[in-house]
Computed example of a mutant assay.
Amino acid sequence: MNILVLVSGTGTNLQALIDAEKAGRLGPGRIAGVISDRPAYALERAKAAGIPGLVEKAGSGLSDRILHDAREMDAGFIILAGFLSILEGEIISAYGGRIVNLHPSLLPKFGGAGMYGERVHRAVLDAGEKESGCTVHLVDAGTDTGPILLQRKVPVLPTDTADSLAERIHTEEHIAIVEAAALMAERLNSK
């Protein structure tokens, strides 16, 4: 089961997936390629692991180019691991139920357009939430609105800053992304 991973940054979640694959924890899943929407260190991680990687610049036509690439590598499903661009158009229907996104909050809270990275953690703190975490969900035509696959929670501490909260959530993201990838690979492989 070929997996395409989409990234935008340093690729720590990608590294968690690479390490899980090496340890045999992705079931029938195999990372077949990595695409970034900008030059990113994540592509260095892919290269070091012998995984093909490329940049498809953010902007007009991005989703169509990614769809073409996904079909070329015969991707069974797509994982958005810190991918900052919003997918739209034909890829959403062509890969319906086969695109997963990792979001740094407990959706449906603190999701939607413009809610990523530090903005999410700051909003959680400003709202006085007692817990936060991460969500892996299926991608649909909305932004952070698809069905939830799994969530991992962390407490929000009285001393938390956006950075300290992000750090604790990031640890849970590495677990969640691997669990979701293995779940999707098993689910789709049995169809």
Rank of each mutant, 00 (worst) to 15 (best):
A42D: 07
P52Y: 11
G82D: 13
G27W: 13
V154I: 13
P108Q: 06
G97Y: 11
I66P: 09
I86A: 09
T12R: 07
R25S: 15
L165C: 04
L80D: 00
R98V: 12
S190R: 15
A127W: 03
H121Q: 05
G53R: 01
P104I: 04
N101S: 12
V7K: 01
V100S: 14
E118G: 04
F83S: 00
N189E: 15
A181S: 15
I66M: 07
T135L: 12
N13H: 11
I86P: 01
D69V: 14
L84T: 12
P52G: 12
A16H: 04
G128N: 03
R98A: 12
A181L: 14
P108L: 03
L165T: 08
L80H: 00
A16K: 00
T143M: 15
P104K: 05
G133W: 09
S105M: 03
S190H: 14
R45V: 02
A46S: 05
F110D: 00
I86K: 10
V5K: 09
L106W: 01
V34S: 02
A127V: 05
I91L: 06
V55L: 02
K47M: 01
I177V: 15
S132W: 07
G89T: 11
A162P: 09
G50A: 09
N189L: 06
R25F: 09
R45L: 00
A94R: 08
L26W: 06
I92M: 09
E72S: 14
A23G: 03
L17Y: 11
T171D: 10
A182H: 12
I78Y: 01
I78H: 01
A113L: 15
E90T: 03
L67G: 02
S36Y: 03
G146N: 04
L106M: 08
I31N: 04
V100G: 12
P52I: 06
E90D: 15
G53S: 10
S63V: 02
T161W: 02
Y95S: 09
I175R: 12
A180E: 06
G111T: 01
R187L: 14
A141I: 08
D74T: 13
I175F: 11
D144G: 06
K153S: 13
K57W: 08
S164Q: 02
A185C: 11
P28I: 11
I31E: 03
R187A: 15
D160E: 11
D144R: 05
T12P: 09
D37H: 13
V120P: 05
R65Y: 07
I177E: 13
L84H: 11
E172G: 00
I99V: 06
A180R: 01
